[in-house]
């Protein structure tokens, strides 16, 4: 088997104020897998994500992306890691900070050293993938929330990451935007880790799910099977929407 896209070994972390968020997390995600990371508020999901690209330094344990150790003390590998891990944050306004959509999508590849025609090409390709090419010269604040979220996805796709990480991709989207984003994500040939409370979205997009609760992984398995297990759901403060029916 090829090198896993993501491997996390015994990761523990406490914030400087002493608040411990992670107590030994183990995760292995193979290339091309689509995995949902589920868990109640405050389970440490966002903290975990920020370890994957080296924004938080592991208190204990290791994170490997495509076989490379995430080493916060080594700025050279860190730059490589950040181009391999694409994180789409929850609020697109945090992610889109340049005056126009095109410039924002160019930000990542530019930092990786792309210039000129190569840079333009990377930007256009990424915008085509999310169906937003025609908005290239528009300022982000003129777009709808769903469009901004799609552009945010393009900003990390432009870096051709090894793994795409989405923090609550369906939050605040209207049903049509939610479905359009699912279609886009389904069409991408990429390893995907999706943090979400939207369990039907997890079923739709991710064959496999992990449940993070209290700073450890409490369950790991097929999404449909995990979500059918009422015991597991209850223990981890997870709930399917009322009336939602899991088939198969």
């Amino acid at each position: 088997m090829s090198t896993p896209s993501l491997e996390i070994k015994e990761l523990a972390f406490a914030y400087p104020d002493g608040n411990q968020a992670l107590y030994g997390v183990n995760i292995k995600i193979e290339k091309g897998e689509r995995v949902a990371l589920l868990g109640p508020n405050g389970a440490g999901k966002t903290t975990l994500i920020l370890h994957i690209n080296g924004i938080h330094a592991a208190g204990h344990g290791q994170v490997y992306v495509g076989g490379v150790l995430v080493d916060v003390k080594n700025p050279e590998t860190l730059r490589g890691i950040r181009s391999r891990v694409g994180i789409v944050f929850q609020d697109p306004d945090d992610q889109l900070f340049m005056p126009t959509v095109g410039e924002d999508v160019a930000f990542g590849p530019y930092n990786m050293g792309l210039r000129g025609a190569e840079l333009d090409n990377a930007v256009d390709q990424a915008l085509i993938l999310v169906g937003m090419l025609e908005f290239k010269d528009r300022p982000p604040h003129h777009l709808s929330f769903g469009q901004r979220r799609r552009v945010a996805v393009a900003t990390v796709l432009a870096m051709k990451p090894e793994i795409l990480i989405l923090d609550e991709p369906s939050s605040n989207l209207d049903p049509a935007s939610r479905r359009e984003l699912a279609e886009i994500l389904n069409s991408l040939d990429i390893t995907l880790l999706m943090v979400t409370h939207d369990l039907p979205y997890a079923v739709e997009l991710c064959p496999r799910s992990l449940i993070l609760a209290g700073g450890v992984i409490t369950a790991d398995g097929k999404t449909a099977e995990l979500l059918k297990d009422e015991q597991i759901l209850k223990q981890n403060r997870l709930e399917l929407p009322k009336g939602f029916n899991l088939q198969g």
Binding site: L50, N53, I55, R82, V85, F97, F107, V156, M159
Partner: peptide, 12 residues
């Protein structure tokens, strides 16, 4: 948060 997002995309 914006700064985090910038760092995540390789801002130096």
């Amino acid at each position: 948060r914006v700064h985090l997002a910038m760092l995540s995309r390789g801002f130096t």
